[in-house]
Amino acid sequence: MPGRFVKDVWVTVLVTAVLIWIMPLLIGTYTLTVLVIYGMLGLSLGLIWGFGGILCFGQTAFFGLGAYTYAIAAINIGESTLPMILAILVPAVFAALLGAMMFYGRLTDVYLGVITLVVTLILFKFMNSTAGPQYVIGKARMGGFNGIPGFPTLNVPGDPDTYIWGDPYFYVCAVLLALVFLLVSALLRSSFGRVAVGIRENETRASLMGYDVRARKTVLFAIGAAIAGLAGALFANWAEIVTPSLFSLGQSAEIIIWCIVGGLGTRLGPIVGAAGLAYLKFLLGQQAVVDNTLITGLILVLFVLFLPKGIVPALVGLWKASFGRRPLGRIHQARRMRGGERANG
């Protein structure tokens, strides 16, 4: 349905433009940038879990890999264009290998969860132990627990001395998120995306119809990792340091929570869930009465028990609770899209 997709593109562009214009008036761009990056990370898991049915407990592994790849490549190369591309490619290739190992072994739910969790832990432990001077890639010291600081941040392609930071960096991230969102939308409208949803619904039936389930899952997994890798590289630019905590279990848990709360099987849900919860965490971090982790945990438990689908009314309530006033555009869009999603099946 090309007509519908064109309309979708226009709506996305319009909403993005309005949000990019309005949001900096409400929240500082420094905070907004990281919310946008988390939104992209949420979207990456939302794609493979919500549409592909692959519950990955270690999505943060790809996020961290992207960040580390960017940092190491940027130190060695001295500019940012090629490192950005590498930060997308390396996690994607890694995920393709890991995915091939898992899906061709026909591992499912729990076992998939264990393997992705374990791989994340291996990376976490390994990165933490790389403090010694022998752990060097090119000119970049791995730094162990302290991570890698002081790498060149994003610059205008072809002009290594013009850095993109502050407000312009926020606009870059926001536009990239919109682009990724559109690409994901296009992917889901393509036959590949429809078959992926079919596999999620019934793997046996899809394979009996002649689709190579293993290959398709592997590819989808790699695409999700590529998006997470891009988010990781953007995060590295924002934080200007990469540390092993990017690979921590807490970080993995958070991505899953974003998706559950925002709503699985929607494109917008994980983004809204990520940005909303990250901002809530940011606000909660400014008070000392209640522990932050306690609230995060409570939210996850309550959502699994009472709103396992992360439905819209709860989202609107949460939005109201965390911001006090509601940006109408996004909610209406969410409603419309969910409606569309349901109608499309």
Binding site: V110, I260, D291, T293, T296, G297, V301, V304
Partner: peptide, 30 residues
Amino acid sequence: LVIRHLYGRLVDTMLATWGLSLFFIGLVTM
């Protein structure tokens, strides 16, 4: 309070207990 409602839903129990783990970390920290 929690697990009883989720028997037979493997992934949901994993997620709920993950939430519980964060909850307990927060509680003990407090």
